[in-house]
């Protein structure tokens, strides 16, 4: 029974990677064959960046889904986080290779001077660090520090959302919605932390277990 569940979870994960990479593949083929409009590089860059943000947001939805709706999709969170990282990597690669044409002087100027680009690079750097430590070995090796490290995903989400808002000349409904979703997901964490603190004191006085209803899942808290 248990092994079948594990296997089906593995298949779902595999399917998640497969389906998750479809937008990148489709967009790339369209761009390479001139079916991405008049400014294909720009559309490709934006598509990749937007999907990075979407997967990042989806990975942040896992905890509230579990806590508020009782739906536990924790076993798919790493896949979502990694998809966010891969899309961020594609996005950065498209910017450096296709857009800038490896013009390293412009890249250096962008990275050092422009908050818009710095925010994007910060989000990418964090995602890269989290992706690199997303394996079982790193989790065992880092112990408690792993959790602290992976809380940086909140910073990545903030940077990515602001980066997205700044990528347009004016505030748009779309960017505002993404920003609000990120803000709501972060607000949930703040609320949860406060609620746990509030609960822990009276709870320990009563001799009950702390506020952690899901101790086994805590390793993946992010």
């Amino acid at each position: 029974m248990a092994s079948r569940r594990v296997r089906s979870a593995g298949l779902v994960r595999l399917a998640l990677y497969g389906i998750g990479l479809v937008p990148a593949a489709v967009s790339f083929v369209q761009g390479a064959t001139d079916r991405l409009g008049a400014d294909p590089v720009n559309v490709f860059e934006r598509t990749l960046g937007l999907w990075a943000l979407r997967f990042l947001i989806l990975s942040l939805c896992i905890a509230p889904l579990r806590d508020l709706a009782g739906i536990n999709l924790l076993r798919y969170r790493r896949a979502l986080g990694l998809l966010a990282f891969w899309y961020a990597l594609f996005h950065l690669t498209a910017y450096v290779a296709l857009d800038l044409g490896f013009d390293l002087r412009t890249l250096l100027a962008d990275v050092t001077r422009r908050p818009f680009i710095i925010l994007g690079m910060a989000a990418f750097t964090i995602l890269a660090a989290l992706a690199a430590t997303s394996n079982g070995w790193a989790i065992r090796r880092l112990g408690r520090r792993w959790q602290a490290l992976h809380r940086w995903v909140y910073a990545a989400a903030i940077c990515a959302a602001i980066h997205f808002v700044l990528s347009f000349k004016v505030i748009r409904v779309e960017t505002l919605l993404y920003g609000l979703v990120v803000a709501a997901l972060l607000a949930f964490r703040v609320w949860r932390t406060a609620a746990r603190r509030g609960r822990r004191r009276p709870a320990s006085a009563a001799g009950r277990d702390g506020g952690r209803e899901f101790p086994r899942d805590d390793a993946g808290e992010a």
Binding site: A32, R113, R114, P115, F116, I117
Partner: peptide
């Protein structure tokens, strides 16, 4: 430069695909 991007170069439009 524009505060958010460089104005040193530009993407010509309508030159067909990525490459």
């Amino acid at each position: 430069d524009h505060p958010r991007w460089s104005q040193a170069s530009e993407r010509p439009i309508g030159t067909g695909g990525f490459f």
